[in-house]
Amino acid sequence: MSDYFEEMGWTPLRDGEAPNSFLHMARLLRDFGMWDELGLGERLPPPASKEAISNLKDIKFDGTCQQCTVCLKDFDAASSIKSMPCRHSFHNECITPWLKKTNSCPLCRYELPTDDEDYELYKKEKKRAVQREEDVKSLHNSMFS
């Protein structure tokens, strides 16, 4: 059986280390739904990381994907086409400004990593909360079914 810290996905404080009260405050705000109430949930997620943008694959025009859904123009041999990991492709000049604004695919919302530590932490916490809920549910089922 795992210990408390491991189960929560937390690390115990080292000697002389102070707890991060900003992080605790952020968790509190989120858990009580105040995050959205303060309008923080209404902001777009942060930009994609510079690395993720520069790592986008260049693809050659081969006629399989026909239209860029950002500018609605058809691709042609002269287009510089970038492909996202979700395999949606866009003109370089269309996808780059979008990813400098927010980190997801304009078509399917596939998320690229960001350089924003707070956002990455927030995302991780959200994922962990879902995981914990599932764990509790399966524990509950194994006990009562």
Binding site: S104, C105, P106
Partner: peptide
């Protein structure tokens, strides 16, 4: 019309 806008919407 706010945070869930995506550039492929029309």
């Amino acid at each position: 019309l706010k945070d869930q806008w995506a550039a492929a919407m029309t």
